[in-house]
Simulated scan of single mutants.
Amino acid sequence: MSQTVDRALSILPLLAEGPADLGQVADRLGVHKSTALRLLRTLHEHGLVYRQSDQRYRLGARLFALAQQAVENLDVREIAHPHLVRLNEECGHTVHLAVYEENEVLYIDKVDSRYPVRMYSRIGKPVAITVAAVAKLLLADLPEPERRAVVDRLDYPHYTARSTPNAAAYLRELATVREQGWASDLGGHEESINCVAAPVRGADGRVVAAMSVSAPNVVVTADELLTLLPLVRRTADAITREYSGNTPAKDAV
């Protein structure tokens, strides 16, 4: 880590103890006041610290907002994980949990299949956003202007003959997903892999995450996997109830 970044980050735990003036910050860091002022100004520009009317500095609102966002994402994973494990134990297939973050859909949890054939997917890895069932659920819930803007700027790789071909087709599919309350990927990314997914909602009813069950054709057919949809939706609803305290509206996305 560079010395400048290290010093800047050292300011945050200092201010967590309470407001401090420039001299106190400089003394704690062991630097000249001019150096401390440059660091504080940079943090101030990003909303991470705030200068009070008495010229002392405190932690900024932006920092609390980022912390709250991080906690919310962590909470949904922690709450969901036992449910994902139980679903995996019941059906035996790979179970994923994903979120939409900074124009990407990322896996934040995974429980592997009990079968010898395993899916190549990793926690923290972006999904194939134009075909993945979890991505369809997360994008379908975006406000329409944002949804159209995101869809229009995506590329549409031809993974298989069943891949989404273009933006117009994707918008139609997302409209269907919104209406039916679930999503699937039946060979759109890999011809041999099928997937069904359901949404997890926050207290405001918005989709905060999506969970899915995936399996290769050599284990179950697409039709057989689709029979698990009620179980997948019940699991997603159970996570929603625990995460938000709300009972999910039937068939709503």
Rank of each mutant, 00 (worst) to 15 (best):
Q3E: 10
V5L: 15
V5S: 09
R7Q: 14
L9H: 03
S10L: 04
S10K: 06
I11H: 09
L14E: 09
L15S: 03
A16F: 09
P19Q: 02
P19D: 02
A20R: 05
G23F: 07
G23W: 11
Q24C: 04
V25Q: 02
D27M: 08
G30H: 05
V31Q: 04
H32Q: 14
H32A: 14
H32F: 08
R41G: 02
T42R: 14
T42S: 14
L43Y: 08
L43M: 12
E45H: 10
L48N: 13
S53N: 13
R56P: 06
R56Y: 10
R58W: 02
L59Q: 06
L59N: 09
L63P: 11
L63G: 05
F64R: 15
A67E: 12
A67L: 11
Q69L: 12
Q69K: 13
A70D: 14
V71N: 07
R77W: 03
E78M: 14
E78K: 10
I79D: 09
A80Q: 10
H83A: 03
E89W: 03
E89G: 08
E90Q: 10
C91G: 00
A98W: 00
A98E: 00
V99R: 07
Y100H: 07
E101S: 11
V105Y: 02
K110W: 00
K110V: 02
K110G: 00
D112R: 08
D112P: 01
S113K: 00
Y115R: 02
V117E: 11
V117R: 11
R118H: 12
Y120K: 08
Y120R: 12
S121Q: 12
I123L: 01
P126Q: 03
V127T: 14
V127L: 15
V127R: 07
I129R: 03
I129S: 03
I129K: 03
I129A: 01
V134H: 05
A135Q: 00
K136F: 11
L139H: 07
A140T: 09
A140Q: 10
R147W: 00
V150G: 01
Y156I: 06
H158S: 12
A161K: 10
R162D: 10
S163T: 05
A167E: 11
L171F: 06
L171W: 06
R172N: 07
R172D: 13
T176S: 08
T176A: 05
V177Q: 01
E179P: 00
G181K: 05
A183M: 01
A183L: 01
S184D: 11
S184P: 01
S184Y: 09
L186K: 01
G187M: 04
G188F: 07
H189R: 01
S192G: 02
I193P: 01
I193Q: 03
V196T: 05
P199E: 06
P199M: 06
P199N: 09
G202K: 09
G202I: 08
A203Q: 15
D204Y: 09
G205D: 06
V207T: 13
M211R: 02
A215Y: 01
P216T: 12
P216D: 08
V218C: 14
T221H: 04
A222S: 14
D223G: 06
E224Q: 15
L225V: 08
L225D: 06
L228C: 11
L231H: 08
L231S: 10
R233M: 15
R234V: 08
R234C: 06
T235H: 04
T235L: 05
A238E: 11
E242M: 04
S244E: 08
P248S: 13
A249V: 15
A252S: 15
